[in-house]
Simulated assay, not measured.
Amino acid sequence: MYPGHLVDVPGFRVGHAQNRDWGTGVTVILPPEGATGGVDVRGGAPGSRETDLLRPENQVSQVHAVVLSGGSAFGLESASGVMNELAAQGLGLETGFAKVPIVCSAVLYDLGLGQVKWPNMAMGREALLYASSEDASQGNIGAGTGCSVGKIAGMERAMKSGLGQASLRLGDLVVSCLVAVNAVGDIRDPEKGNLPVAGLLGPNGEQGSTMDFLLDGERGADLLGKNTTIGCIATNSRLDKAGALKVCQMGHDGLARAIEPVHTLFDGDSLFCLASNQVDAEPNLVGILGAKVLQRAIVNAGESAEEAYGLKSHSSL
């Protein structure tokens, strides 16, 4: 496991809620007041809320929460629970008539595990109320509860994945990441010779390879819209929306290093960036570190996951 967690960036809080019988959950990331947000959506089957607002040419730059949820498009409802609770706490963008919390969200597909139910407003609110500046959760929790990887040959040869976190510090600059890995591809560790962590199993239950499966010309399962890796890079750097977008774009390099293949039409890969604007740092450096912590968080998601819903995990192999 690589060290660090998203809350290593001062002022950030993270909370989770899940229903293990349903096989799904929610993770809420709360930045300090005045945090700048950015997002870059790369996969072909995304589900999201308030992502257009973060485009550099649009007006609002401050984000009050990022919600990562299971449940496919149904899970977007959980962000409404977060929004309502933040409003009840008096937080949000002042419009003259009401404070409107800016809550951005991305969802992943986990409806095939557990009961066919999904996160709702109550689960989103619960995750927010559990938010802590000391969160170190990884594995089968929050948005990682129903995550799986290596699904090209169907769920019977997939493996359990989950939620991962990691961070890096360079002087006063801190860059961290939290990610829920639900990819069609495999997790590999680029810092250990591309060593397989979790992914497609071979016909006899041994560690396999999605790339080898595809290169051998085998026919894959119908996975359209049923996979996604969603995450958030956090930093104490000063960034405007254009800088936050660049960090997201560079951060996707971390997905490409640790997930093989990635950004397919089957995936909805979405990456947020939240900057608390406390430390001067060159955006390229933040992006480079962001890609590094993301690839480490992805590996941690695979290594920390526990066997569940009939799926083997890294530890069970």
Rank of each mutant, 00 (worst) to 15 (best):
G96L: 10
G112Q: 14
D110I: 06
A158K: 03
L129M: 12
E156F: 10
I102Q: 08
G139M: 05
D110V: 06
C147P: 03
G92T: 02
A127F: 06
L111A: 14
A98V: 11
S105N: 14
G114R: 02
L113Y: 13
G154F: 06
L129N: 08
G142S: 05
A122N: 13
V149A: 04
C147Q: 07
E156T: 15
S133M: 02
G146K: 03
E126A: 14
G124F: 00
G96R: 13
K117L: 15
T145N: 11
I152G: 00
M159F: 07
G142D: 05
A158C: 12
V116S: 12
D110S: 10
G124P: 03
C104N: 05
A131S: 15
N140I: 04
M159L: 09
M123C: 12
R125G: 01
G92F: 01
K151A: 06
Q115R: 15
A143R: 02
S161K: 06
T145W: 09
V100W: 06
M159V: 03
A122E: 15
L113T: 12
S161G: 10
D110W: 02
G142H: 02
R125H: 06
G164S: 13
M123Q: 15
G144A: 04
L108P: 05
P101A: 06
A106C: 14
A98S: 13
T95N: 12
I152K: 03
A143P: 00
E94A: 13
S132Y: 13
R125N: 07
M121T: 14
P119K: 08
P101I: 02
Q89Y: 00
I102G: 04
G124E: 03
Q89D: 10
I141P: 00
E134Q: 14
V103F: 05
S148E: 10
K151F: 03
Y109V: 08
S105P: 04
G96V: 04
G114M: 09
V116G: 11
L163V: 09
S161E: 11
N120T: 11
K99P: 01
S161Y: 04
